[in-house]
Design a protein around this nucleic acid. Sequence first.
DNA 1: CGAGGTGTTGAAATATCTCAAGCGCCGTGG
DNA 2: CCACGGCGCTTGAGATATTTCAACACCTCG
Lengths: 240, 240
Amino acid sequence: MSNAFTDRLRGHGPLSDDDVRLLTAACHSIRGHRAGHHLIREGDRPDPVFVMLEGWAARYKILPDGGRQIMAFMLPGDFCDIHIAVLEAMDHSIVTLTKAKVASLPRQQMEALVEARPAITRAFWWSQLVDQGVLRAWIVSMGRRKAQERVAHLMCELYIRMHNIGLATDNQCEMPLTQVVLADAVGLTPVHVNRVLQALRQAEVMDLRSGSLTILDPAKLARIAGFDANYLHRRLKRAA
Amino acid sequence: MSNAFTDRLRGHGPLSDDDVRLLTAACHSIRGHRAGHHLIREGDRPDPVFVMLEGWAARYKILPDGGRQIMAFMLPGDFCDIHIAVLEAMDHSIVTLTKAKVASLPRQQMEALVEARPAITRAFWWSQLVDQGVLRAWIVSMGRRKAQERVAHLMCELYIRMHNIGLATDNQCEMPLTQVVLADAVGLTPVHVNRVLQALRQAEVMDLRSGSLTILDPAKLARIAGFDANYLHRRLKRAA
DNA sequence: CGAGGTGTTGAAATATCTCAAGCGCCGTGG
DNA sequence: CCACGGCGCTTGAGATATTTCAACACCTCG
């Protein structure tokens, strides 16, 4: 009677058993997808809200010149904006990056939950808050950090997020990102990302390779990244 | 019985007279500030929610190396995240950029409104949605657009937002940004921003000067920027 | 009158991109 | 089982966008 989704929301504040039951029930349609499957495409009329139960996905936009910019990574427990259903057309797309299991909640059911269950609404707001914090951190990175710092910062973010959902062991976790995906996220060129990764490896700071990240020197990594975790404010940790 | 704030929210969906009355009443403490006044500083414990009634403000973060990155501009009718009150400490600051009039709503009153008034909650969600759209657009800009396109895009965004709140006439509006503020927003150097502005001026695309923006060739500007307004989904326009 | 913020200009330095090529791996199809 | 093609990673060298540093003019404000 729980999954990555309810666990995550519970991290944002107490939910009654009833709340959890309603939420799990709402995730009725659960489907498996392979890497590269589009959950939504730009231009689609959005209806259901997607919730990642397993695997990774990315939210991205394609520019007129064909370039791609990734705006967010979605990990297990994350979900697409609840209110997105109000729009007529998506202005971006979402793809799975790995094999994934995703639930979809019909819009109406979502809204019903929000209207009826204050605790759930509150949990959603929290989640929103964290998401916005992440978006802002990305803006700071892209605006003022140089290549090395940028990828270091992203690795910090993703490691912490993985850690928060119990998917990281000591200084190591899965990180199923190819160098071009990484490049599209940090706003660099794949070849430059490659060189940056090599530099970080040779400096014995971190090692990203074949789908997994190893942090060799956490303090140094955080210093390079200028990383300050508290924008990810994880209630979970504190409540535990 | 209305102000920039209620007008804005009304743009996101119908509000009853009662809703509007409650909202205006909630803006009890209204104060004037001069340019450069901090509404919140990083590290502060946030309590009230601020609403811009007149003037501009910017949300920014200072990096370890002393650099500043602006993450958002706040125009009349905008407000800081409602839920921000849940945090223990602000992870960024907000300053006024011009003389400004701002209302502050106590946290509790805010939450009471949200619990009691579904229409108001809905309006807040909309507002959130738009804000997130803007954040994402900034990420795309900083990640994949070059200097000229970036400032062109920002000018498009700000012009449209000013237009939406009735503060722009034909292809012209107030734009009280110094070149260094602009630079801190788009992630460039002030001197480079200067050159970009000159280029856009000489190309007769737009002219930003002494606090006001003139769009000389809207089509060209939008083309350079790769601008697509629909992420700002303004209900106002449609409803009108 | 002086000080500081703002806009402007020039020239050299540098981070990042572009283009181009090669290598290893893996899954597919013959 | 092998050959092939495609993808992901790596490397090099030259091109380019943007930064840095430094200086100056202008204006406002005290």
